[in-house]
Simulated scan of single mutants.
Amino acid sequence: MTLGDFSPQLLDGTTQPLADYLGKVVLVVNVASKCGLTPQYEGLEALYRRFGDRGFVVLGFPCNQFAEQEPGSAAEIARFCSLSYEVSFPLFSKIEVNGPGEHPLYTWLKRSAPGAESEDISWNFAKFLLGRDGHVVERFAPGVEPESLAPAIERLL
Rank of each mutant, 00 (worst) to 15 (best):
E76K: 12
W108A: 04
V58S: 05
R49D: 08
L44A: 08
E42P: 02
S73G: 11
S118E: 15
G43W: 00
G101A: 13
K94F: 04
L105F: 02
N98R: 06
L91R: 09
F51R: 13
L105Y: 00
R54K: 15
E86F: 13
E70T: 06
L91D: 06
L91Y: 14
G52K: 11
I121M: 11
A74C: 09
K34N: 01
F80N: 07
Q65H: 03
E86P: 10
L129M: 07
S122G: 06
L59S: 14
L109E: 00
G99D: 03
P62D: 07
A74P: 12
P90C: 08
L130D: 10
I77E: 07
G131H: 05
S73Y: 14
T107W: 11
V97K: 07
L59I: 11
R54W: 15
G60E: 01
I77W: 06
N124M: 09
K127S: 04
G52T: 07
E96Q: 12
N98V: 00
L83A: 15
L130Y: 06
L109G: 02
P39F: 08
S93Y: 15
F128C: 06
F66D: 00
P100M: 02
E119N: 12
E117A: 08
C81M: 13
R50E: 14
E86N: 14
G55M: 10
A67T: 03
N98C: 11
A67C: 02
R49W: 03
N98D: 09
W123V: 00
A74D: 15
S93I: 14
L37E: 11
A75E: 15
E102C: 11
L130A: 05
E68D: 11
A67E: 10
Q65V: 01
F56C: 11
R54Q: 15
L44I: 02
G52V: 03
T38A: 10
L105A: 05
F56H: 14
A46D: 12
H103R: 02
A113H: 04
L83C: 13
H103Y: 00
E96H: 14
K127T: 01
K34V: 00
N124W: 08
P39S: 10
I77C: 10
S73F: 12
L59W: 09
L83V: 15
F80S: 15
Y106C: 02
F66M: 04
G99V: 11
F128R: 04
S118N: 14
G115Q: 13
L47I: 06
L47P: 07
R111C: 01
L47M: 13
Q40L: 03
F56V: 08
N98W: 06
Y48Q: 15
L130I: 07
R54H: 12
N64S: 07
K34Y: 01
D53Q: 14
R79N: 07
E102K: 14
I95E: 09
T107V: 08
L59H: 10
T38K: 11
E42I: 05
E102A: 14
K110E: 00
G72E: 09
E45F: 04
E76A: 13
P62C: 04
F61K: 00
G131R: 08
S112D: 13
E117C: 03
Q40P: 02
L37N: 06
F61V: 05
C81W: 12
F125N: 09
F128P: 04
F92V: 00
